[in-house]
């Protein structure tokens, strides 16, 4: 018998604290597998955010920094400028990246920092208990938008992958999801490609992953997968918004 799938060696043996069925765990696995498959893990420094994935520093089996809320791309910049030949990534939620840390990620992209940002978009603030995020859908309920996000009051969700795609220093920007097997394979390839491009020093690489938050969406884990497909993907289309390898 040959092992066709087992726990990634890119992850530590620490049990993850995520809620049952939260796809943060799936995304961790894809990142860890990509680093192992590209033989980058031993030379990687990751940056954990503030959000549900704050403990990512305990889960990835590589050197890690825990950054202040939203500052991961600035922290990663500092690391990368000291260690230009190491692989440096940030792993951030939507509150972290698209609200408090918008400036940091945009400017890391502008400078073309040779880092990879994994952006976990679950359309809500998970850790603090389900408050509205910049990515919350119009009409979607949150604890600070109990009647649903009101467009007249809060406008419309931020589309980060598209925004990053417009920035000169960005080499790659894509939106993927992990809620079914074909999409998970695409997500896996996207993450691998991002790290590969970083290794080739091509510029800033950005992978937005549509993820679930069953706990704060008030859905079961399985229903949450469907909600991403049926509802979230209507607002946030999957696709590649920039890829300098594909020059038209």
């Amino acid at each position: 018998m040959a092992v066709v799938y087992q726990k990634s060696t890119g992850l530590t043996d620490v049990e993850m604290h995520y809620c049952p069925g939260c796809t943060h765990g799936v995304i961790h696995k894809l990142v860890a597998d990509a680093l192992v498959e590209l033989d980058l893990l031993d030379n990687t420094v990751g940056v954990a955010p503030v959000g549900c994935s704050v403990f990512a520093y305990n889960y990835f089996n590589c050197d890690m920094h825990e950054a202040a809320h939203g500052r991961a791309p600035a922290v990663a910049t500092g690391i990368k400028r000291v260690l230009p030949d190491n692989t440096v990534f940030t792993y951030q939620g939507d509150g972290d990246l698209a609200a408090i840390g918008t400036a940091e990620v945009i400017h890391a992209a502008m400078r073309g920092e040779s880092i990879t940002t994994i952006f976990v978009n679950n359309a809500i603030y998970g850790m603090t208990g389900g408050q509205m995020a910049p990515t919350t859908l119009v009409g979607q309920k949150a604890t600070t938008a109990p009647l649903g996000r009101d467009q007249a009051h809060y406008g419309q969700p931020l589309h980060m992958a598209e925004m990053i795609g417009l920035i000169g220093g960005a080499a790659y920007s894509t939106r993927v999801t992990v809620v079914d097997m074909p999409n998970m394979m695409k997500a896996r390839n996207a993450i691998k490609k991002a790290f590969q491009m970083q290794r080739e020093k091509k510029g800033f690489t950005f992978v937005e992953v549509l993820s679930t938050c069953p706990t704060n969406w008030g859905l079961t884990p399985v229903q949450s997968l469907s909600w991403v497909k049926d509802t979230m993907m209507q607002e946030f289309p999957l696709g590649v918004f920039k890829d300098i390898d594909k020059k038209e």
Binding site: V45, V47, H65, A67, A68, R71, A74, V75, A76, T77, G78, I79, K80, R81, V82, L83, A103, E104, I106, H107
Partner: peptide
């Protein structure tokens, strides 16, 4: 892009 970012770059560099 700001002093906030600058000090966090320092944080990253110092950690490395």
């Amino acid at each position: 892009e700001s002093e906030v970012a600058a000090i966090n770059m320092v944080y990253g560099a110092a950690g490395s």
